[in-house]
Design a protein around this nucleic acid. Structure first.
Length: 324
DNA sequence: ATGGTTTTTACTGCGTC
DNA sequence: GACGCGGTAAAAACCAT
């Protein structure tokens, strides 16, 4: 690294001291060979140009964290100013009006002035939070949209999800939770409400937050907004699975029938709806001679083959006891 | 935290192509 | 021999308490 780079780091605020210090360093000589020394601020070392001897190590780099190539980058990357944070809706950049009722010189304000400042504080706060909610919403809706299209969910589900999110926002459910998490939970809830459920795993795959956080947030949102969401109906998975497996309408119809019988027999309780649906599709494919393997079904349903086996036996038993 | 239930994992044996 | 299928035991995950 040459000294031109060093200059660039500090060009804006080069002071006399820095310049003289720099010159002193460059005119210093290597104790080994007498060659001139060069400081490499990127490595934090001072080395001899001639023999490569490292004279100083672990120096502190006085420059900004990264190289800046133009004025705007310099603004972003300089060490000056309060750190921005995502913890606050506006990254901590908005204006706050102090509470002390002092002017810039520290003198107390007249009562008239005090009232004025109080009104300003009130309005400032109002605008700021309204803006923040809108920004928040905008981001969340974008996120919901992204995930919904990734999952192939229709328009009405997105609508429902945004409504849920908006309610969560209005009820002040957001503090302490991430926008990502709440929007994902809203989408999950909406998909279930609309009868086109996606499993937690599928949702987690397209979301930026992990499965457990989604589940936690989902429970919370459902409870706080007292949303009524029934456990997913196995039948609602059937169309998706059968179309993923290129199966006919006939199979789909048969699978539904199996599930309805099972429902009347009360076979499913506590069993995962996805497993039931997968088993029904598999059983139906056998009954209609459009065989798919257990493995294929387990792939599209994200369920183990063992579960499919267990469930489809139960389904067939239920079918027998209803039918001849 | 705990215990009961369900699901998954891993392994095995059997029959078929 | 690879594949599909069935079964089992033990581990892991889930859920209500």
């Amino acid at each position: 690294m040459t000294d031109t780079t060093i200059r660039r780091y500090t060009s804006e605020r080069e002071t006399k001291e820095e310049q003289t210090a720099e010159e002193k360093e460059e005119t210093a000589v290597c104790p080994e060979c007498g060659g001139s020394l060069v400081s490499d601020s990127e490595r934090g070392e001072t080395v001899c140009e001639e023999c490569g001897l490292v004279v100083e190590e672990d120096e502190i780099d006085p420059g900004p964290e990264w190289r800046a190539f133009d004025a705007s980058e310099k603004d972003e990357k300089s060490r000056v100013g309060a750190p921005t944070t995502n913890m606050m809706h506006d990254k901590g950049l908005s204006t706050n009006i102090g509470w002390q009722d002092k002017d810039a010189y520290g003198n107390s304000l007249s009562s008239r002035q005090r009232e004025k400042m109080q009104r300003l504080r009130t309005w400032n706060e109002r605008f700021r939070t309204r803006d923040s909610k809108e920004r928040n919403l905008k981001q969340a809706l974008g996120e919901i949209d992204r995930m919904a299209s990734a999952l192939g969910l229709p328009e009405n589900v997105r609508e429902t999800a945004s409504v849920i999110y908006r309610r969560a926002l209005d009820e002040d459910l957001l503090p302490g939770r991430s926008i990502e998490g709440v929007s994902t939970a809203s989408l999950y809830a909406a998909a279930r409400q609309a009868g086109t459920p996606r499993s937690l795993d599928e949702i987690a795959n397209v979301s930026r937050v992990g499965k457990d956080e989604i589940a936690r947030t989902y429970r919370y949102v459902v409870r706080e907004l007292s949303l009524e969401i029934q456990p997913a109906d196995p039948e609602s998975y059937v169309p998706r699975f059968s179309s993923d497996l290129d199966l006919s309408e006939e199979v789909e119809r048969r699978a539904r029938q199996l599930l309805q019988n099972a429902k009347e027999e009360g076979v499913h309780s506590g069993k995962s709806p996805v497993g039931l649906a997968a088993a029904a599709v598999y059983a139906a494919s056998l009954l209609t001679n459009e065989k798919v393997t257990q493995n294929e079904v387990s792939e599209v349903a994200n369920i183990s083959e063992v579960t499919i086996r267990n469930r489809y036996h139960e389904l067939l038993e239920a079918e027998d006891s209803v039918h001849p």
